[in-house]
Design a binder for these strands. Structure first.
Lengths: 191, 191
DNA sequence: CCAGTTGTTGACTGATCGGTTCCTAATTCG
DNA sequence: CGAATTAGGAACCGATCAGTCAACAACTGG
């Protein structure tokens, strides 16, 4: 009942995600959001409550989208090591193409480490990534793809950590040789 | 000539560094700085010009301090691998003790990736870290500490990247077992 | 001691911040 | 058709933002 919304709320969250991703939470004003989402101030607050809540929704969207992408990629992979290598090199390409946005998860972890809700969301997604990697590596070990004496969980924790470093270096020193060398050493660590 | 300054400018930059470190550039107001530095608004602007310039000075201070610390540690080390391991585990301890500040370099790279000056400063410091690691690994290889078929520069690029990831995970998921496992796998990659 | 120089101080500036309010518009249910 | 409900829109809110200014204070060289 009541007047129907004239804008697509999912599309609006997507646009907000892009803004927060590129500019960060603090540097994105409500005016930026009003303009970027193409709706008025009143509608924005009616629909999302506050800048904080909209950020939380945008971050959740990013987490679902990106964790899902990685998990699917790992599940579909016939060989795990090449799949992981390809996934890391794909991130390198993304950073080389446009170093500014980087990874919203990393940005959230660093800019908003004093905000419990944000840290919780980030931590939970990192946990999902870790688990997906650990599962894939476990399967790889069972198939003899990686050595039996390696602990999949430990390798996954290592890779999860390395992955975040890659996103940081992509912003700080977006140099192809550097990033690709780092990836090759990291992937070799799985042997 | 002229009236002498009544505050220690180095101490003021140090305090500003601490504020920017914990809160980020955007979230630190000039009022925070006035209060934290214990000087008045006018003096702050007379001495530092702008919030941007003070941030640049604080970041430079951090870079000099931290790059120097790591380089010295590597130079003094008798065995390189244990030294690197110890350095990484020290960072883990710092993040476990207080996950909020993390690393100002990482914070700068993520929050201010659209500001060329900041990115330049960060990139240059990462380069110094990379070079220090590469030099230490080169010496280690010459002494037979690590395998002859490993490229010190590539290992250094890998370690530099991993190091940044460690600082991110320290904020996002400050869990001892996780971080220590990641470090062990990373150090093993040097063999 | 005085002119010149620089630092200190606190009030002040216009702009922008995140958020609210009030009125109107559009819909559903009875 | 109303009554109820919800969205849209624009003006508006106090607070805070980064930065400036003019008067005053403390120093040096002549």
């Amino acid at each position: 009942m009541g007047r129907p919304r004239t804008f697509d709320i999912d599309a609006a969250v997507d646009r907000a995600m892009t803004l927060f991703w590129r500019q960060g939470f603090e540097a994105t004003s409500t005016e930026d959001l009003v303009e970027g989402l193409g709706i008025t101030r009143g509608s924005l607050y009616k629909a999302f409550g506050s800048k904080e809540q909209l950020y939380a929704m945008a971050l959740r969207r990013y987490c679902q989208h990106h964790a899902a992408g990685l998990i699917e990629m790992l599940d579909r992979a016939e060989q795990v090591r090449p799949a992981i290598r390809a996934a890391l090199l794909e991130l390198v390409e993304a950073d080389l193409a446009d170093p500014v946005p980087g990874c919203l998860l990393v940005n959230a972890a660093t800019e908003r480490s004093a905000h419990a809700d944000t840290v919780q969301q980030v931590s939970s997604t990192m946990g999902q990534v870790e688990s997906a990697l650990a599962g894939a590596l476990e399967r790889a070990r069972a198939r003899g793809e990686i050595a039996a004496d390696k602990e999949p969980r430990e390798l996954a924790q290592f890779l999860t950590t390395f992955l975040q470093g890659l996103r940081v270096m992509g912003k700080a020193r977006a140099n192809r040789a550097f990033l690709e060398n780092a990836v090759e050493v990291a992937v070799r660590a799985l042997d």
